[in-house]
Amino acid sequence: MAVPEGEWEGLMAAAQAGDARAYDALLRAILPLLRGVARRRIADPTEAEDAVQDALLTIHQLRATYDPGRPIRPWLVAIVDRRAVDRLRRRGRHAARETPLDELGETLAGPATNAGEKGVEAAQLRAAVAELPPSQRTALALAKLQDLPLAEASARSGLSVGALKVATHRAVKALRRRLGVKE
């Protein structure tokens, strides 16, 4: 859809002066442009729409920096492009920490059977952990299950970093023995 030249610029100048109606009209008019730029960067439509919303917030935050003497398109495109790249980077960081669930093996097709097997395994594991000496149990909980950095686990448990390492190692070894895992 062709936009008359200077229309968006005029709306933004009015918005800077406090005209809420002009601002509302401008933000709705620029949505297709923002969505187009975001979708070119991000394939997932939901994620792309989140980037469009981020861009709208940034436009709102930076509206005083727009100079009505200059075309508004490059200003808008730069903002939505930056927000889309930010989204992609954030998603990349999350993906590096996550494991997709569908890659976990299934022994039987029925979900209930797998859950049952998991339940038995969990009960065995809990029993094995309960039999560990208290220091090994604490070390395992802090360093492995809660995945705390050693320094923090040491501060919480009152054990030195060295003692913590030894206790964790022994705990894992004891569990392996108990659950019949070969070294």
Partner: peptide, 10 residues
């Protein structure tokens, strides 16, 4: 955003 609009000094 439009409801929150305040005039800004360019």
């Amino acid at each position: 955003l439009a409801g929150d609009l305040r005039p800004v000094r360019r």
